[in-house]
């Protein structure tokens, strides 16, 4: 399974490296979202600093939706999903591989967005341990849920609109918990950030396990 996962992740990242959709389209879109948030708060800097963790995770959510859609649009083109189904790769391995590829893109995007938050919103990043841990665990959760729902929608006629409708409420707990963990890490709240990290870890574990078990049945039906 792990070998299959490495193959699929390598394939997805190679495709992305050649097409450069994440670099040329998703990353600029994420930065534009940050800029728009800045316009919406109209130079109210204290408020912007307070809201920065939430805005960061909303930008990650929007960009994550695009990354997941992209991950499955390359499979639906030219019947690639049929080749994947017939390839005798373990479905759990395909799932893990796609999660790793999406998560890798999201981590790069998050680094870029964190830079944007520091520059545009003048936030001060701190609490490095909690910040990095909550970001990585949240990214795993977003990628796992995204790939599970992406597989659900891959063959459907209204998948472009259906995926955000299905995935956004599912990711609401991640946005909430990750925002609170970031607020604690940045010293914007007195809450225990590590407790939120536990919730994020539970979410990621549930979707990783559920996705690995159910992915085979889902792609058989698409």
């Amino acid at each position: 399974m792990w070998r299959d996962a490495a193959l699929v992740a390598g394939k997805d990242l190679r495709v992305e490296g050649r097409a450069k959709v994440a670099v040329n389209q998703v990353a600029p879109y994420a930065l534009v979202v940050l800029l728009l948030f800045g316009f919406a708060f109209d130079q109210d800097r204290p408020l912007l600093v307070q809201a920065a963790p939430g805005l960061f995770w909303m930008a990650v959510l929007f960009s994550g939706l695009l990354a997941v859609q992209r991950s499955f649009s390359i499979e639906s083109a030219d019947g690639a999903i049929d080749a994947l189904r017939l390839s005798r790769l373990e479905p759990a391995g395909i799932f893990i591989g796609k999660v790793v590829a999406v998560a890798a893109q999201l981590v790069v995007l998050e680094a870029l967005l964190a830079f944007g938050v520091v520059v545009l919103f003048q936030s001060r990043l701190g609490g490095a341990g909690l910040l990095v841990a909550s970001t990585l665990v949240s990214t795993a959760g977003v990628a796992a849920a995204g790939v599970a729902y992406g597989a659900l929608c891959v063959g459907l006629r209204a998948r472009e609109t259906l995926l955000p409708l299905l995935l956004s409420p599912v990711l609401a707990p991640v946005v909430l918990a990750a925002t609170e963990a970031w607020r604690a890490a940045l010293g914007l709240s007195r809450g225990d950030g590590w407790r939120w990290l536990g919730i994020l870890a539970c979410f990621a574990a549930i979707y990783l396990a559920g996705g690995a078990i159910g992915f085979g049945a889902l792609i058989e039906e698409t």
Binding site: L152, C153, L156, R157, A158, R159, L162, L165, L166, S168, P169, V170, G214, A217, L218, E221, T222
Partner: peptide, 26 residues
């Protein structure tokens, strides 16, 4: 919001078996 997604998913799938399987997961 999840229930709206569930109902939208059911409308988007024509095959009864696939529709039942996917909507059951949600």
């Amino acid at each position: 919001a999840l229930s709206l997604g569930y109902l939208a998913l059911r409308r988007a799938v024509d095959n009864p078996h696939s529709r039942a399987l996917m909507s059951s997961a949600v």
